[in-house]
Structure formats: C-alpha cells, structure tokens
Nucleic acid binder design. Sequence first.
DNA 1: AAGTTTACCATACAAATGTATGGTATTTCA
DNA 2: TGAAATACCATACATTTGTATGGTAAACTT
Lengths: 207, 207
Amino acid sequence: MKTELTEIQKKILDYLIEQKISKGIPPTLAEIASHFGYKNRATVQQHLQAIERKGYIKKNPKLSRAIEITVEDKFFIPRPVLGEVAAGNPLTIYPDAIDTVELPTIARMPKDSFLLKVKGDSLKDAYIFSGDIVIVNPNLEPKNGQIVVAILDDAAVVKRFYKKKNEIELVSENPDYKTIVIDKKHPSFKIVGIVVGVYRSMTKKAG
Amino acid sequence: MKTELTEIQKKILDYLIEQKISKGIPPTLAEIASHFGYKNRATVQQHLQAIERKGYIKKNPKLSRAIEITVEDKFFIPRPVLGEVAAGNPLTIYPDAIDTVELPTIARMPKDSFLLKVKGDSLKDAYIFSGDIVIVNPNLEPKNGQIVVAILDDAAVVKRFYKKKNEIELVSENPDYKTIVIDKKHPSFKIVGIVVGVYRSMTKKAG
DNA sequence: AAGTTTACCATACAAATGTATGGTATTTCA
DNA sequence: TGAAATACCATACATTTGTATGGTAAACTT
C-alpha cells in the first residue's frame, strides 16, 4: 500500500507534476535542487528515492529526466471551487469553498489561480455557460477584450473587459444584459482576475 | 516563412512528436540516433539544426531533452476527414463529415482518459466548439444521449450517441448537420470513448 | 535512552549528453 | 561546371546528469 508523503515530498511531487504539464518534460535533479534552493542534487536524489519507495513515481535508471508519475488518478486533480460568479447579474463570492471539482491536469493552472463556478448566461456568446468552471488568474493585467472576474459592491461578475479613457466597461456578450460602466475611481470596484480557462464536466448530465 | 522539410527531417520531426506524446518527454540525441540507426549523434545534431533553422522546433542549448516542438498543431496529428477521404469511398454519404477531431498519434495519455481537439461546429448546441479540448474516457459504456467519439472509416467524429434496435445514431446538436445512421455491424465503425469533460484555454485570443 | 526517519550537506565518479570541428559522397540547382 | 545543400561518418571535449557514499542535525518513535 502507499505510504503518506511528507510535506516536502508532497511539494516535490507537485513540482514534478507541474513541470511535466507546463513544460512538457520532467525536470532534472539539478533543476529541482535549484528550484527548492538545495545546494546539491543528492538531497533531491534522496527525496525522489523516498517518493519512489512510496510508490508515487517511477524512475528509469541512468536516463535523464526519466521520472514517471505513477499516480494516474492525478489526471484529475481535486480543486476547491471558491464561489459562484454571475455572468448575468452580480452574485456573491463565498469565503469558503462551495464545491470541489476534479480538474483535468491539462487545465492545471499556475499555483496562484483559483476556480469559480459560473451562474447565468450573459456570457453565452463567449461560449461560457451556467455551470461551467472558470479558471481565474489574479496576477495578470487585464487587456481589452479579455474576460475578467470583477467585484462590484461586494458582488462578482464575469464580463468582457474594455478600458476607456476615464472608465471601464464590462460588456456582456449576450445582448440581453446591459454593459456596466464604472468610473476608474469607483471605490468598491476591483478586478479579481482574468479568466484563463474554462472547464465543464459532462459526466452528470446525460441528455 | 517556413521552409519545407526534407523527407528525413520530416521523419525525425515525426519521431520527436511521437515520442513526446507517447513517452511524455522528447528523446535525447543518442536515442534518436539509435532509433534511426545512426552511428553517432552528430548526424542527428545536424538534422535537428536544420529542422530548427526551418522553424519547426526550438532547442534549449545545453539542456538534455530540451527540444520544443513549435508547430503546435502538430501535437495533434490530423487524421483524414470523412469528406476528403471520400474519392469513391462509400463514406461520402455523410455530408457532415467536415466535423472531425484530430487524434493524437498515440492517444496514450494517463491511463484512463485522453484528449482530443475538436474541429468543426456540429456540437455547437452542446456547447462544444471548434478548438475546444475534449477529455475522452475509452473505458465507459456509452449511454443514450451521451457525447461520444467514434471512428468511422479512418475519421473521427464527436457526436451525441443513441442506440436503436439495429443501428446506432450519431446526432449533431447543430441542425445544420444531418444525423449519421450506422448499422451495428458496420465493419469500420468503433466507439473510441465517451466525452467526460471539455476544456478551453482562453489565454490566446484576446478579443 | 536508543533507534529510525527525515532533511539536509559535501565529495566523487562513470556515463550520458550536447556541441564543435573536420571529413566524404551524393544530389540539387543555377 | 561549380556552388550549395543534404546526408552521413569520426573524433574530441566540457557539462550535465544520475548515482554512490559518508556525514551532521533535528524530529519522531519505541
């Protein structure tokens, strides 16, 4: 049976998965060491041996970058959904996770991103629908035309973003909803982040 | 602009793509050399330089296995499209053959599921669009109404599945496309898997 | 109190790896 | 006919890489 990983081992495994997905190739020992600030590769080597002993990875001896990740269930990674966000009219973000989705690893977002569940159909024409999960990155500067999550008077909306001279426009793709225009100095307005991906699970609805 | 690759260069690029998809990591020079029967790595080295010069790959100097494939559409190898394959084929019957997916050469992603990129808009009303990536599970029995990936005479389609008495119906959500009806005994028909999720990256299009 | 696991460090070394350089033969093209 | 591109070969070399070995210190069992 699989033993539990220690915190550090977990972090290293996470890094392996992240690198494999984002860069396409697993890192070398040296790269892992450098990322975690280790002064030599032997430290990493020993951690990998521990992780392998516990059955989470498999190493192909002598070959470079030949770390195989054997926790295949990890194809879907459970992630907390932080709240619901309105595509139509504003809705509140809950402080705690309201749900969990199993996100495919391809959709694996940079660490700083989070998930929100979309309610409403105002982004219909941008191909985002009620029930979809949007992946939000809070650390990107919004560019005109991008879809953003914004907070307006304590409620969150998903809209297309346009910066004008003195104000910001939040546009719905669906003509049924009016464009929101906000003065740049509006006190309770804040861009939460940019929608970098959309995921929808099909397993429930079978019709 | 990109220059044409020679036959051998093409074969090497194909091998790079195949390895990247099946093994997860690009091969080393030595591995390529051994696969093609070259006696030394310098030969491969020169071919890679040529391929890079022509813009199909990018190499990260000094790092092992650091071959980046820059022709990203090639990540999914296009399979013949129903309509085009046609030329005398019985398949020309189905006029909506334009709707296809591109199958990865070796769809051997993590154990259970693999990814397909959707081309065409026949599933528009099921909220799946051209460019979306669908996650396919080959180990589930298709139920009526579920969206499946099927192979029909060397081309792959994504459609909603309905089992009738003697035949199988593959229905497009988009009324522009006609329903495909296949006899259950059709020799070259095969269900590849069930679509369990849809993912779309928003990072590229910015308006 | 003694043993084990975890978490690092340092040094050492053979093999793997990418790269540089120079050479030969064939084909392609102006 | 001659230059250029292609397709190989061989040798050489500095790094990179994986791995082995030995050591220290803290934390956690038993």
